[in-house]
């Protein structure tokens, strides 16, 4: 049975596409086959984060209109075995896609892939409805901020109403030094508010931006970073492994002491 997981958030810009691309790469690295669906019709950028934009020929809409076969539209990532992308159309009207059509495409993909990750657009309108239509699990991405947590809660309610009860949380852009000085909500604070199980914590890290600049998922970067480890850990947890959550503050101090040691400080 393949797993169909929608990555959604309500609020825009909290890291859905970042999570979908990096988590997809991390799962594929564990030896699973992964299809990523860009469900952000009209504003696609999953292809860009993956560095695959040059190789997009057809999109999901071309498949739906019968212009190409599903297999032709899938862009294979040559760096990571088992990872493919189904791009969204950039130019056409996003209203032209229906939940039923998303279900059709997704169910066809289940025949060839262990995981199907769907990158949802922001909001709770039609694009969101399309993105969740075929999903049996959801990953909610939020940041430790009031508006993002509020929207996350709204979306959790909507997913439950749609019968999607397998919901897990990723808290993105955590800044341990701000949590320590009581300027940012902690992971525990957010968990207490949202009351859904945690599947990962990702630090706010410039390496995430560097990776998107290069169009290279974090887990295949030469210097394996803390955010890369976060994504690998999430992938392993999805696979059912019990991976302890790392203490970001301790990790950061670790790195700092290591640097100090190098410079004899």
């Amino acid at each position: 049975m393949s797993r169909i997981i929608v990555v959604t958030s309500g609020k825009g810009g909290v890291g859905k596409t970042t999570v979908t691309s990096n988590l997809g790469a991390a799962i594929a690295q564990l030896g699973r086959t992964v299809a990523l669906i860009d469900a952000d019709f009209g504003l696609r950028n999953l292809d860009i984060l993956l560095g695959l934009e040059e190789r997009v020929v057809y999109t999901a809409l071309d498949v739906l209109s019968g212009e190409c076969r599903l297999a032709q539209a899938l862009v294979k990532d040559k760096r990571i075995k088992g990872l493919v992308l189904l791009p969204a159309a950039q130019n056409r009207n996003k209203e032209s896609v229906q939940p039923e059509q998303m279900k059709k495409i997704t169910s066809a993909l289940t025949k060839g892939y262990d995981y199907i990750l769907i990158d949802s657009p922001a909001g709770i309108e039609m694009g969101f409805r399309n993105a969740i239509a075929a999903a049996t699990e959801a990953i909610i991405v939020t940041t430790p901020e009031v508006a993002a947590v509020r929207d996350a809660d709204r979306v959790i309610g909507l997913l439950e109403a749609e019968g999607i009860h397998n919901i897990r949380l990723i808290i993105n852009r955590v800044r341990p030094e701000m949590v320590q000085t009581n300027k940012m909500m902690s992971v525990e604070d957010v968990l207490e508010l949202l009351a859904v199980p945690l599947v990962g914590v990702i630090p706010d890290d410039e390496k995430v931006i560097v990776a998107t600049n290069k169009g290279e998922p974090l887990v295949i970067a030469e210097d394996y970073s803390l955010p890369a480890l976060s994504f690998t850990n999430i992938a392993r947890r999805l696979e059912g492994e019990k991976v302890p959550f790392m203490d970001l503050m301790a990790e950061q101090n670790n790195i700092l002491t290591r640097i100090r040691r190098i410079f004899g400080g």
Partner: peptide, 28 residues
């Protein structure tokens, strides 16, 4: 920093949490 955030900022972390508790209760 910690000292000052306790004193001056009245702890914006705690404030965010309190606000959210109310907002979520009403939303739900």
């Amino acid at each position: 920093d910690m000292f000052f955030s306790w004193n001056t900022n009245k702890n914006s972390r705690e404030k965010a949490k309190r606000r959210l508790q109310l907002i979520l209760a009403h939303d739900r």
